[in-house]
Design a binder for these strands. Structure first.
Lengths: 365, 365
DNA sequence: CCATTGTCAACAAACGTTTGCGCACGCCCG
DNA sequence: CGGGCGTGCGCAAACGTTTGTTGACAATGG
């Protein structure tokens, strides 16, 4: 036992080290400590006092109270990410992208799950605004979305990601869903499928309508007239996909292939095919969207439209920080080119190519 | 076009409605508005003034500035969840549990990913402390963890979840890993397996050592002496599980069964078995731990030890809020009884039973 | 030797709340 | 009619920072 009177890290258990306390101990005014701690460039100070203060700062491990700082400086160094459900691997990866980009800049990130409920979304945003978060990244917006307009009106910096809204003039990061939907459908057409079902997203959400348009466009390009019964709304959950797939497969002349608006809904369809004893891809081919990690683990693995999920989050964070830095709302849009990844759910014996590297296809303004 | 001079929501675009501004408009002192807004019980006020103020509050949709409020009241209504990686479905579900329990109480929740790095963990906690979060839920703690001791010393309310630390006297929510490890191993023993490999967690983490102890205890109970070469450390990632499984299966007399410390590592082993052409469960049986959603989607589905993940988060949040409310650090521990779920990765043709409902096995103090 | 300049650090206001205290006014009752 | 009491609300301090301005003192130059 070396030294019975071992010192604790902080001499006394008093936790909140404030400028005033330090000032008393250093025999200087609080403002002086503040300037030293903040490395105020236009501060001239006598070397001895500076060293005395710096020593004290190190000794006490002083960190300014972020709340007080936030009040004075009008910035909290907190961002918020609003998503339907972090339990969905797509949104989990998206969040990581945001944190990985924002954390090095000193930001912490709040996570808000809405479960797709406009009410929860609104209530979260109210709360975030009251907390004076520096910005919001929203991946749960609707095509017509009062809360987006509210954000705009309140002057809160924000970026929409994956789903756009209204006129699409908000700062946005996402993929070209029209192209993506077309790619997926064309792939099935080229494989010879003629009755292709679509597990469609909601008409209230941009991804839903745009991927559906891509699907229809691909059919039209082949001169095929779409069968309305082959398009059934599934939402974005596994269960939703399962129910919709059941309806599709109960049809008299059922589709030989399905394009699902999302990997998770595709997974739902997978389960149904399994339960019905339909072999994938021989009796039913399936294409998803997003290329979540789960896609490669299905057996057979899931053909899907790849988008750089992590990069969605990171790019959105960068766009947001840019707005915060400049103080100017942006209208920049970063659109990635989706890329078809052919796997076993459409083609027997298909391997997955090396992980594709995507770069922004184009960015306006 | 009805009414060209349509009013906007707020009469002018000035966003930050402050007490002072309202006070000027209502011809009263800011403090009076504050008391009305907060429904101060011991406030006596003339009905007319009250109504005037309440009308104004509604009209302007006044919400007190949370930062200023936090400074004065010394509570931010912000919690933080610290985890290795939200991309792991286990932690995503855990987070949902926390948010679902904390959100109704007016809290927002910060999410911090450490990737298992002590440095990142420490830096996150420093930041959280500077922000004066009201409490921390930590699911990334090590057996010997300076940051846990630091939390204790700083007097920051906290709860450990899934992994305990040190003496295990911190407020904690988790499962009985010793029992869980034993259940998994006994199941394999009962199936007749005698060479059972273990994809082990790290010795620096409580789940790692405890589940390993459970594994060894089950072997010992059968009078089997464990083969050291059958225990290989895998960490907690899919890749880690894959690498460890490769080593295990490269052994001269390789194991016929594997108990993996975690579902994700089990998934890694799954992949290896697939690549090696080993049939599961006939040539290799696999048991995981945690029962993440992915477990039911593997083919064959994964036998695993079920723990109520969402409830982990919710219980931890409740424990944390309790400490915050009382102002007293707690020593309560909530331990759930793990439950073996037999599926196709150990027994051919095994169905999954109805979702088990778990209640806390016991709670100390 | 006095005025000017320069160096160092203190002063004070402000950010937007909350809350204990006290003041003025009108009413009642003696 | 006057003292006391209750009602209704304002005053001001405090939470912990940041930052523009001012002031004291020493040094320097003419």
């Amino acid at each position: 036992m070396l030294g019975t009177g071992e010192r604790l890290v902080n001499e006394d258990m008093s936790m909140p080290v404030t400028l005033k306390e330090l000032a008393a101990r250093a025999q200087v005014h609080p403002s002086t400590i503040s300037r030293v701690a903040n490395h105020d460039p236009k501060l001239r100070i006598a070397p001895p006092t500076r060293q005395r203060i710096e020593a004290l700062l190190r000794e006490t491990e002083y960190r300014p109270n972020g709340v007080a700082r936030g009040l004075k400086l009008r910035q909290t160094l907190v961002l918020a990410v609003v998503i339907p459900d972090v339990t969905n691997p797509f949104f989990a990866a998206l969040f990581r992208g945001v944190e990985d980009a924002a954390s090095p800049r000193g930001y912490n990130v709040l996570l808000c799950n809405t479960d797709g409920s406009p009410a929860r979304q609104r209530s979260h945003l109210q709360s975030l605004h009251a907390r004076r978060v520096d910005g919001v990244i929203m991946a749960s917006s609707f095509l017509k979305d009062p809360t987006v307009r509210w954000l705009r009106h309140q002057g809160i910096p924000y970026v929409l990601v994956n789903r756009f809204s209204d006129d699409g003039h908000d700062p946005f990061v996402g993929s070209d869903d029209l192209v993506g939907g077309r790619l997926a459908t064309e792939h099935l057409l080229e494989l010879g499928h003629r009755r292709i079902g679509h597990l469609a997203g909601k008409l209230t959400v941009s991804t839903g309508v745009t991927r559906r348009r891509g699907y229809l466009a691909a059919l039209a390009a082949r001169g095929l007239t779409p069968d309305p019964r082959l398009v059934v709304e599934s939402g974005y959950t596994e269960d939703g996909g399962a129910h919709a797939a059941e309806r599709l497969l109960a049809l008299a002349d059922r589709p030989t292939a399905i394009f699902a608006v999302t990997d998770m809904t595709a997974v739902g369809a997978f389960g149904v095919a399994l339960r019905m004893g339909l072999r994938v891809p021989e009796e039913l081919a399936i294409v998803g969207y997003n290329d979540i990690p789960l896609a490669t683990r299905m057996v057979p693995s899931l053909t899907t439209v790849h988008v750089p999920i992590h990069e969605f989050g990171a790019a959105a964070a960068r766009l947001l920080l840019e707005q915060i830095d400049t103080g100017e709302p942006s209208r920049r849009r970063v659109i990635f080119n989706p890329q078809l990844i052919v796997r076993g759910s459409t083609v027997t014996g298909a391997g997955s190519p090396a992980n594709p590297q995507l770069v922004p296809a184009f960015a306006t303004e």
